[in-house]
Design a protein around this nucleic acid. Structure first.
Lengths: 113, 113
DNA sequence: CTGAATACATCGCGTAACTAGGTATTGAAG
DNA sequence: CTTCAATACCTAGTTACGCGATGTATTCAG
């Protein structure tokens, strides 16, 4: 469950360079080593939303294969947003680390104090 | 936004030992170094849900201050669930790391190929 | 010719965190 | 004594959002 992290994931996938929706899905799957296999019903609305927000730009191209593709690229605002997301993620991740730190609860006693 | 991670956070907070709802909030705030400041409307339903699911047990106690408290503790199933959550988190976190890895996109050209 | 993979799109459901409200007690400040 | 903050519990309803389901069209292999 990537609730709240999807935007960052998409922006991060596009940090390597422009790509089209279907390709982004594969890029994410590859870079996450199969951990994130996003359905199209997740990615396309996200792309529309991010473009609407001005973090992505898109243009239609026709690939060598002859297929119509909508290629997205980070805008400058998108790049900045990614930097921000990255910082938030680090904080989030660190906080989670603090919480998950092994506390060694002490072996359970018959009747804890 | 901790969507999808709340259960783990609560279980982790209780890994140190039994605690009551209000205290759990403070424990989480402390252990996350102020990053997570959960409102009561988040924590109490979560505790009820987790107890319902058999991951927590609770008992009413009266503190030295005279206040009624509901003290929660991990059940054995809860401990096992925490272990599982921890593993999932590591996978999730690693995957995110792979995605956020600096890709050095190459300086933007006038007209990208 | 059929079926899988590519490539786009949208609607609506379900989940789950949070806002906003409520009650009651203790202790400090005025 | 009153007031206000902190402690301590609770729940109903809103909202956000990822995802399943579904639909269309094209390319290519068998």
């Amino acid at each position: 469950m990537l609730k709240g992290h999807l935007d960052m994931i998409v922006l991060a996938a596009l940090a390597a360079g422009p790509a089209h929706g279907y390709g982004i899905i594969q890029e994410i799957r590859r870079r996450s080593r199969q951990a994130f296999d996003l359905p199209e019903g997740t990615i396309y609305p996200a792309l529309h939303r991010l473009e609407e927000a001005g973090l992505l730009g898109s243009r239609w191209v026709t690939a060598d294969t002859g297929r119509r593709r909508r290629v997205y690229a980070l805008t400058r605002r998108g790049e900045r947003a990614l930097v921000g997301h990255r910082a938030v993620w680090r904080q989030f991740s660190d906080a989670m680390g603090g919480l998950l730190a092994q506390v060694r609860p002490g072996r359970r006693r018959r009747r804890p104090a």
